[in-house]
């Protein structure tokens, strides 16, 4: 379909209105893309700039007085970063794997047209998007009754199952020909076996799509860590980064009030370097995984 649109546009003669439109679209979209990209470039170039240069000139598009000082400093004492990376990778891997399996299995059941209670069960899930206990009751319930405080479960469980992803997955499952399931049934395969051996392998692109959405959610999560985690050794990457930035900013604010020289404070380039380290994997993987996200968003936007 996209190809058709392009082909159509190519055929069109350059009328005055088309020229005006092209100028608007190319310039506007170009500028917008620049605005979306610039912060990242400045982040990276800042992390390779010297502290004095940032302080004196501010941030810039190209590294000033190029140096890898900040990276060397961080990796001279890498335990805490590696630990935070470890926590993040652990919760991302475990949460994505379990969550994906759970989502797919549930999607399979509620997509089975011959399952009488599928609509009731779907509504049971859907209702949570319309109404929920809110922040306070959820927090108190998790802490007082589920005892999630400072437990890795607090980082994994809240994101494990998401109704929006369930609905996307259901539309992937709907693409599996029902005849396949029927014939497996006639051959005497049990429901679970049909799901594992026949349906699951056919859902590759659905699994990739939802798996990536889930992984991204876990990777970027700091909110649950902030609410539930106390022990610094258990902090995931994003929350560790947040803590580090907060300390630096709070100190800077106090320092500027009482007139302390900023040189003695945790450095700007260090903060940027941490941000690069925390975001790096996402940016590196982005070109390869982007199409799955586009697919997921497109399917998610179609109702039903």
């Amino acid at each position: 379909m996209a190809e058709a649109t392009v082909a159509r546009s190519n055929k069109i003669k350059l009328t005055p209105s088309r020229i005006v439109f092209n100028i608007i679209s190319y310039v506007f979209i170009g500028l917008l893309a620049l605005v979306c990209l610039l912060p990242f470039i400045m982040l990276v170039s800042g992390s390779f700039s010297s502290e004095a240069a940032i302080r004196f000139n501010g941030y810039s598009i190209f590294p000033q007085e190029f140096t890898t000082e900040a990276y060397e400093f961080i990796f001279r004492n890498p335990e805490s970063i590696f630990r935070a990376y470890g926590v993040t990778i652990f919760i991302t891997a475990v949460g994505t794997a379990i969550g994906l399996f759970l989502t797919t299995m549930t999607a399979y059941v509620i997509s089975r047209k011959d399952f009488k209670y599928r609509n009731k069960i779907s509504f049971f899930f859907y209702f949570t998007t319309l109404f929920n206990g809110g922040m306070i009751s959820t927090y108190i319930f998790y802490i007082q009754y589920l005892h999630l405080k400072d437990s890795y479960f607090a980082l994994i469980l809240p994101g494990l199952f998401n109704v929006f992803y369930l609905l996307i997955m259901r539309s992937f499952v709907n693409n599996v020909p029902p005849a396949l399931i029927e014939s497996a049934k006639i051959d005497g395969a049990g429901e679970f076996r049909i799901f594992i051996q026949i349906v699951f392998p056919l859902l590759k692109s659905g699994l990739a799509t939802i798996g990536l959405f889930k992984a991204l959610g876990y990777w970027n999560d700091w909110y649950n860590a902030m609410l539930y985690m106390n022990t610094e050794a258990k902090f995931p990457l994003q929350y560790m980064l947040y803590n580090m930035l907060q300390k630096a900013q709070a100190l800077a604010a106090i320092a500027s009030q009482v007139g302390i020289k900023a040189e003695d404070l945790p450095s700007n380039s260090l903060k940027l370097c941490m941000a690069v380290i925390a975001t790096g994997p996402i940016i590196l993987l982005y070109p390869f995984v982007q199409k799955y996200f586009v697919k997921g968003v497109t399917i998610g936007s179609v109702k039903g």
């Binding site: 979209i29 979306c36 990209l37 982040l43 990777w219 970027n220 994003q238 975001t279 982007q290």
Partner: peptide, 15 residues
């Protein structure tokens, strides 16, 4: 351009 415009969705609010 479309790829670049989609990029901000992928980073955490911390960043």
């Amino acid at each position: 351009t479309q790829s670049v415009i989609f990029l901000p969705y992928f980073i955490s609010w911390v960043i």
